[in-house]
Simulated assay, not measured.
Amino acid sequence: MSMSLPKALHEKVLKAIVERFDLVEDLAEDGGPFLPLNSHIPMHEGSVGYMRRFTGSPMFQVVTSSIVVPALQLDSHMVFAFTPSDSAVPHFTVDSVCAGEHHAFHLDLIPRMDLGSQLTYMNEVFLPLTESWERGSAIEGLSRAHLSPRQLGIMSPWMLANRATESAFVEIGSVVDDYLNHWFGLVENGISTEALNGLSASELIERDRRNKFAIFNADVDPVWQRIAPLVGNEAAEKQIETLRAVSA
C-alpha cells in the first residue's frame, strides 16, 4: 500500500531534519514512540498514532504528532522543530493533513522576536522567504484555511496555511523545501548581532515561553478541542506540555 501524500511529505521533512543534525529519538520505556496515542472513540479501537521526540545539538527538540483514523477519514501529521529557547533562530513547522477528499497544510517559521519592532531581524530572517511565499500563495487549487486573527497574530506573515486539491498539495512540496533549506541556513549560521538588537538570552527565553503558551492553547487553537476526545485528556495534555517546553 502506497504512503499517503501527507505522510510522505511529513516523512521527507522529518528525515531531512534528523539526518541534517544527527538527532537521536527519545523512546518510551517499551522501546516504542515517545507517546503512543490510543483511541477514545467508539468507532475505532486501539492505536490512532503517536508523538515522537528527537533531541541533539543544535536543536532543543523536534516533536512530531501523527494521527490516522480511517473511520473519520483523518490522516494528519505534524513536525515542529524547536531551536533552543535562548536562540533567535525561528522554530520550523509543517503540518500535512488529508480529511476525506480534502488536503491541507500549514508551513511556517515561528518568529522569536516581535517583527513589528525588529525590522533588521525581519529583513534578515524572513524577507528572503518572500519569493517562495508568493509562489506558494499563487498555486492553483489552494483556498484559505479557517484561522482566527489570534492564530494569525502568533505566527509569521510568511505563513502558508491552506486547504488544497491533491495536485496543489503535491506542488507545495517545493515551497516546503525552500522554507526548510532557508531555515537550515539560519540554524547553522545563526542570527547577526545587528538583528539581535541587544535582546538578551533571558528575554528570548521568556518570549519563547509566552509564545508557546499562546500557540499550543486549546482556547486559541480549536484543534485541541477535537484531539482531546479522540485520544483522551491525559494524552492531549501531555502533547501540549511537551510542545510548550522551554530549554532553559
Rank of each mutant, 00 (worst) to 15 (best):
F105R: 07
I172E: 08
T242C: 14
I240N: 01
P6L: 00
V231A: 08
I215V: 05
A104Q: 00
F126R: 12
V48P: 03
F126Q: 08
I172C: 01
Q151F: 08
F105S: 02
Q225V: 06
R226W: 07
H91L: 12
D178Y: 10
A214N: 13
M59P: 10
L107M: 08
L27H: 12
I227P: 09
L74M: 10
D219G: 12
K212G: 00
H106D: 04
L74H: 03
S247W: 02
L230H: 09
E206C: 03
D114S: 04
V79Q: 12
F213P: 00
E171H: 07
A214S: 15
I67D: 09
L127K: 13
S39G: 07
L127N: 09
A81G: 01
A145K: 14
F184R: 12
G232I: 07
L196I: 05
M155G: 08
A88H: 11
Q225D: 11
K7E: 15
E11K: 10
V63I: 15
G185K: 13
F21C: 03
N38W: 02
A138V: 03
P42W: 01
G173H: 09
A8P: 11
V62Y: 10
A228M: 12
P58I: 05
L72C: 04
N162E: 10
Q118I: 00
L27R: 15
L9E: 09
L35Y: 12
I172K: 02
N181F: 14
Q118N: 15
E101F: 06
F105G: 04
M159Q: 14
T83Y: 10
Q118L: 05
A228E: 15
N38Q: 07
A168R: 05
A168W: 05
V13N: 11
V68S: 01
L196V: 05
L37Q: 00
V24F: 01
D108N: 07
L127G: 00
S4E: 01
P229S: 11
F184W: 11
W133T: 09
G141D: 13
Q239M: 12
R210S: 11
K7T: 11
P70F: 09
R226M: 06
F92Q: 02
I154G: 06
G49D: 05
E234N: 02
D114V: 00
L5K: 06
I110T: 14
S247I: 01
S167E: 15
V187C: 10
Q61Y: 09
I215P: 04
S167R: 14
Q61G: 00
S76G: 06
F213N: 09
A16W: 12
V69W: 07
A228S: 15
F21A: 04
S174W: 12
